[in-house]
Design a protein around this nucleic acid. Structure first.
Lengths: 342, 342
DNA sequence: TTGAAAGCGCTAACAG
DNA sequence: CTGTTAGCGCTTTCAA
């Protein structure tokens, strides 16, 4: 005796047709019950619900969305590296907003690879996500223009797009760095070493521009403090610090363009048992533990993700508005261990 | 003059039918070109491709999967809190594996809420994800049994499920803690204060069990070192440390059940300018900066996510195998600043 | 209030 | 090699 007559095959997922057969109603009535349409006679609805739980029915949302043309309740988030706390904080904040809108988040890392970024965007569009939040690699995003025009809005975080118009949420890199350098200048420093990452990066260029503003308004020769670029993450920041200190007329203060550079600098200073006026862009959770006092430019990382997601949902509900640009304010904080200060 | 005659409406996304019309071929030929089926005459394929890029066609994968019954190339990851580096590291590792399988990851946080966890599982199943990776809240997961039976496999990370059978990847909490406590005992400590989180948590119970093993085999009275539970994250770990130190016959060493507890303890010791033999479960990126030496139980967090994802994809390709359980090994590391050691 | 028919965008199965 | 027909699981439309 098989159950072919009155039930679905063992492995198959039950469909509304199966439910309808068991409940003795039409497919459409099952659909109405599943969608909580109120105009269904109570006893029928009850029979349908019984059949649903008997079969363990679960609506196939993929199919439902296809016919109705409804949104997929999914947004794509493309960041550079989920393992980096900066980006995972952004992801968490965006996810919290998405949850409020009953939307799921597909998160993917481009790993600073423009080709991968493009692939991801296209893949996500083929999945018909409702919108995209992107931390761009800084290359060309013109391929997004048609997508945006077709109603898949995008919001850019941390850096603006190039080659297409879209909403953006960025840090106030320029003002933050300007205020930081101003403070060093006010303390009397006239020789500030500046260590930055690659200047292909929008944020790094802005930070350097802010530093120059402060130096110029103080009448200090910016050329003398030319940034020493460093190649890659690990030790090279420390090497740059070493080179600066070993040169004639070494700087009395150091500005580090981001927190990884700061860590390299701190290590190098600890190795040399040297103290210097330290300043950096980026606050981070364990900055208070640093064995060296440092003044950092802080900001609300969660706000980046939160505002981007909020802008996206606003745009989903009001398409066609002009792209807007939100700038997250920055502030100065003093960090480093008390132990180390004594 | 409108373009209604030969093109889709302005806002609408072009479908294969539109492409077919423009290219002067049948829908099926377009489908073949889109799927890179080789048996299409070169000139036709070229015309189709031209029409595709003219219209900006993008295949609707949702529809494609519906008919073909193919997998959605999407897996769901349910973690406790994406903002927590432990979980975001797991997510990043799982994402890296998913990428190798051309699969996207929907990541969602349950926030330690069992009801939310259940909602998320059901939502993801309705979206027909190919599989689930779950860091469970420790409550009942029996609702997953039918899903698993129906071919949506699940892998549990960090804690095993209750109420259903599934693959798991967990840390060797017990051995790690046992080895750590053994070391303290070998150093001569006979009074070890133990500060743990809620014992509803599987990992914390296991760690405590490991500690007890070490104490018992050394013939040390475990009761005397009863764990002081602490209520919530912020200061209460520090308060527990304070209470222990102010009691008569205070401990000479401290075991902290996780890294948040360790931070609270370190702060309290710094406040009191007291030094104690410190030990804890969980290594973390900035542990080397701690202003107090500490021996921690380390492990490869990425391995948790990586192995879980690999188990999931293995199961997707070989359904029906018995659930297996993978245990990640642990090791001891000495941390804390050199500065603080001098 | 209920149901039959059509169709979302695509692929499977089969025919030409 | 190409096209036609059917149909995935659901919703929409419209008639009963």
């Amino acid at each position: 005796m098989t159950d072919q007559a009155d039930g679905p095959a063992p492995g198959r997922r039950p469909t509304m047709i199966d439910v309808a057969r068991v409940a003795g109603v039409s497919l459409k009535t099952v659909s109405r019950v599943a969608n909580e349409v109120p105009t269904v006679r109570a006893d029928l609805a009850e029979r349908v619900r019984a059949a649903m739980s008997e079969l363990g029915f679960q609506r196939n949302n993929v199919a439902a969305n296809l016919r109705s043309g409804r949104a997929t309740a999914t947004i794509g988030l493309i960041i550079l590296d989920l393992a980096n706390p900066f980006y995972s904080t952004i992801a968490a904040a965006a996810a919290a907003v998405a949850e409020r809108f009953d939307t799921q988040l597909i998160t993917a890392s481009s790993g600073w690879d423009p080709a991968r970024e493009r692939e991801l965007v296209l893949d996500l569009c083929e999945r018909r996500v409702d919108g995209l939040i992107i931390v761009p690699t800084g290359e060309d995003q013109s391929y997004l223009s048609t997508e945006i025009g077709r109603g898949t809005p995008a919001v850019f975080i941390d850096s603006p797009p190039s080659g297409c118009r879209a909403d953006t949420v960025v840090l106030d890199n320029r003002t933050g760095t300007r205020d930081l350098i101003r403070r060093l200048l006010a303390e009397g420093h006239r020789h500030i070493g500046m260590i930055t990452d690659t200047l292909n990066d929008f944020t790094m260029r802005e930070r350097l521009a802010g530093a120059r503003e402060a130096l110029e308004e103080a009448g200090v020769d910016a050329g003398r403090h030319a940034a020493r670029l460093y190649s890659d993450h690990p030790r090279s920041a420390g090497d740059s610090v070493g080179a600066m200190l070993d040169a004639p007329d070494p700087p009395t203060a150091l500005f580090c363009g981001n927190n990884r550079i700061l860590l390299g600098a701190v290590e190098e200073l600890a190795r040399r048992r040297t103290r210097l006026r330290l300043a950096a862009f980026d606050d981070f959770e364990f900055a208070p533990l640093l064995p060296h006092p440092v003044t950092v430019v802080g900001y609300d990382t969660r706000a980046l993700g939160r505002l981007a997601a909020e802008m996206l949902f606003r745009r989903l509900n009001a398409p066609g508005a002009e792209p807007s640009n939100y700038v997250i304010p920055t502030y100065l904080v003093d960090r480093g261990t008390e132990l180390a200060r004594e």
